[in-house]
Design a binder for these strands. Structure first.
Length: 98
DNA sequence: GCCATGGCTAGTA
DNA sequence: GCCATGGCTAGTA
């Protein structure tokens, strides 16, 4: 495990219930604004291992990036935490984003 | 080589 | 819709 990855894990774990953040924003906070894809990769490979609140990480424009059934699950988890989706299935980042 | 991105632009309406 | 971007890992040698 790398320092950078550890940073990402800490940041993701600090997203409170009822809030969301984006891949790019998390990478930015960790110190590398261009490492957004690394965040997605980490979530994909290590969410279970580190108990990450993976569902609280979405795209920068408030969209869910997952496809299919996984996307439905993510939306349900977020809604159960009080987050609302607009008619286009997007979250208002100004309201819920970190 | 993978990845659950992001931002910018061409091209349509 | 294109493509630059980057840390990491599986898998080979």
């Amino acid at each position: 495990m790398t320092v950078f990855s550890t940073q990402l894990i800490n940041i993701i774990n600090s997203i409170p219930k009822g809030r969301v953040s984006s891949y790019g924003r998390i990478a930015e906070i960790a110190g590398n604004p261009r490492a957004a894809r690394q965040v997605s990769r980490l979530l994909h490979s290590s969410s279970e291992k580190y108990g990450l609140p993976w569902h609280r990480v979405i795209g920068s424009s408030g969209n869910i990036s997952l496809k299919g059934a996984a996307a439905d699950l993510q939306r349900q988890l977020l809604e159960s935490e009080g987050i609302e989706f607009d008619i286009n299935g997007k979250v208002d980042m100004d309201r819920y984003g970190i």
